[in-house]
Design a protein around this nucleic acid. Sequence first.
RNA 1: GGGAGUUUAGCUCAGCUGGUUCAGAGCACCUGCCUUACAAGCAGGGGGUCACUGGUUCGAACCCAGUAACUCCCACCA
Length: 870
Amino acid sequence: MEIPSKYEPQAAEAKWYAYWLEKGFFNSKPDHRPAYTIVIPPPNVTGVLHMGHMLNNTIQDVLIRRARMRGFNACWVPGTDHASIATEAKVVQKLRAEGIKKSDLSREAFLDHAWEWTHKHGGIILEQLKKLGASCDWNRTRFTMDEKYYEAVIDTFIDLYNKGKIYRGERMINWDPAAKTALSDEEVIYKEVNSHLYHLKYKVVGSEEFIVVATTRPETILGDTAVCVNPKDERYLHLHGKKVIVPLVNREVTIIGDDYVDMEFGTGCLKVTPAHDMNDFMLGQKYNLEIINMMNDDGTISTAGGMYIGQDRFAVRKQIALDLEAAGLLIKQEPYANKVGYSERTDVVIEPRLSLQWFVDMKELSEPALENVMNDNIKFFPPKFKNAYRHWMENIKDWCISRQLWWGHQIPAYYTEDGKWVVAKTREEAEQKIKEQYPDYTGSITQDPDVLDTWFSSWLWPIGVFDGFYSEDEVSYYYPTTDLVTAPEIMFFWVARMIIAGYEYRGELPFKNVYYTGIVRDKQGRKMSKSLGNSPDPLVLIDQYGADGVRVGMLLSSPAGNDLLFDESLCEQGRNFSNKIWNAFRLVRGWEENTSDIEQRPAAAVAIHWMNAQLNATIEKLNDDYEKFRINEALMTTYKLVWDDFCAWYLEMVKPPYGEKMDSQTYAATIDIFEKLLTVLHPFMPFLSEEIWHMLREREDGASLCIAHWPSSTNESSPWIEGFEEFSQVVIGIRNIRKENQIANKEKLVLKMLSTQGAASDFHPAIEHLGNIESTEWVSEKPDQCYSFIVSGREFFVPFTAQFDAAAEIKKLNEELVYTEGFLTSVERKLSNENFVSKAPAAVLDGERKKQSDAQQKIEMIKQQIAALS
RNA sequence: GGGAGUUUAGCUCAGCUGGUUCAGAGCACCUGCCUUACAAGCAGGGGGUCACUGGUUCGAACCCAGUAACUCCCACCA
């Protein structure tokens, strides 16, 4: 059967993925083996696979596949996140396209739409991961709104509430007036915008004097309840304690002094609007100021504003500037660039807003989470992220967990009509509690309409996926999990909080290692995004280059924590590598038919010794690379082992001369070696390796490379490896002589050597084979009429052929002489430096002395050669 | 504004406690080859004042100080 010279991945990929699933290789149940567990960072349930997922999941798959081969009970748990705000936004958008407004729907009807959407689009992303080769235990697929998981989230809320860790409080929060929900600080994006700085006149009461404040938000004067200056500011010393009149509003407010105010900025005079600015709120608390909430939840002016009621905040800003100007109270309006917070989801300007929200008190909860990262109980790769982590944890703020949305875990708090509340798992329980705590209350109760922040469910992920809140069966076996692979962007959102939850609910770390991947960027370094349209479709790439090709392409250039500048040519390189392996297989496969019981060629025997030694050494290095999570380095090591060592050297060494047969001993050894190579390739290139592995020998039904054993190795050094260095140099020397003197490869040469000593002596048969050497002769002195080259201080000679060009040869030798003499001078200068000789360690000194004598010897040799030629 | 990090070949990066190799890899590039596995290939080759300036040292890509550029995180001066 003719095997095509190009590897065609499509059929193989479909075939083997189906086979793996059918045989259940990815499924895991607790047993006697040690567990190796990874929980997937759950993608948004209705999300679509992008390049970030590709990188992230490829790394997880590499880790889990290798663990499986090393005999661990490997368990990779997949799943999806309900992503409350992102999913709800999509559903709202879809309904709007159909002419339905969310506000026209009941909560139940809206949730029906959301579930319908989830069922329709949910899990597409998991199907896409299968194309990549992800070896997840699909039977374990979890969703953060699964019944059990939902219950765990609610129970956690109740538990933390009962422990006094959750409280309800009035705080300044980031308000999204479009989505009408609170956002966490992390969901706010600050953008540089060109706005204006308005200078407004406030008249001092009982005086003809005015003071001037500078603000970018003149409309908020409706909520002003003080004016603040720096107490050290001499310009305003005489005004302390006096009152001023807020323009247009005509409210009298006090002038207070606080060194929060920067004297250098603007006029050094700050208007204080406690309800609409984080810092003003802080001042309001400190000086017990009145709080006037002059805005509605949609960003329009409220009745408390007193004027412009019902108008939008931005319209009012324009209008009030005109009105102030008309009243002669606007001194100037100058262009000013500042940063303004926008909602990550809806892209509208965030309104700091005073609101009643639920919070988690993080201070105490976070203590073990900080300590166990700093002491490396949980290791970060790369460790540089520990700094950022520590900084955040040491300054941790309470976590606002309520969101004014419907899609998610509804907060289990129930309110009476007069503003009392209880926290309870069910309505019945809540009614019971109300009865106990407020026996006089007779009205109805309503559940808090808000849902919990998405991360309040995903922080339970490593426990929740094993139903760890309700049964010890699995969680005690799989938890703590082994590795977490994620993006540094969500270190605070997710990683830190999982660690917190881990210690709070299991008294233990959730995972041992955290591997931070970089951000996938395009060639120009821009983050890949939908709006830029610079992200390739992963499925198209897989189709074009094969899943293995894409996997290799992604990993080749992505050290932990470094951004990956993605370029399709990386996939091309991956595809080329697939093809290289494929063709090596074709060559070996060709020998199968052409094997006989002839004696093993000496060159082949050498090759096998060396290749086995090299394999052993490389596996040692690979294990070390993996240990340190240097995945890209492990891949490069594997790449060179296969391409350079195996294809370029080994196969050429064992290849029978044209027209001759392969001996069965070498053939068998080659198959063994190939099999080991496929094993170490498998985590990176699961499909191709499996395909060839099955074609290499007869396999039983149910056999698979996925469950083959990772090859063992020892850390012994081998003389074969040392000898190979010299051997390859000799072969290259011969090739160079051929090339420089235009001697055809077909022409047989004689190689003469001055000494039989040297590490390469074992390789002589291989030198003859690869160099097309007719015979090797030992000579006691330098022969005449020869080309020569030096490897490791030993000289090799090839007798002249007809085309010999003596002048060119002399020129070459002279160049080498000049260089070597220069080198000698620098070594000798070092050795004649008394400080060096007296202070450098003996080993370094010996090294320099050896360099000196080697160089002297070499100079002598070159001089002789030049003399002989002239 | 605070903190962290980066700066080594055209590109992406290694370079572990300062010391055998006048600095390494992959890709890209140049030259020659359709040689009986592979042109998605083979053989050979060029290319770097290790950001800059000082210092410590017998010796610095590596340690120290300063300068510059870039990146990220945190804060969010109205």
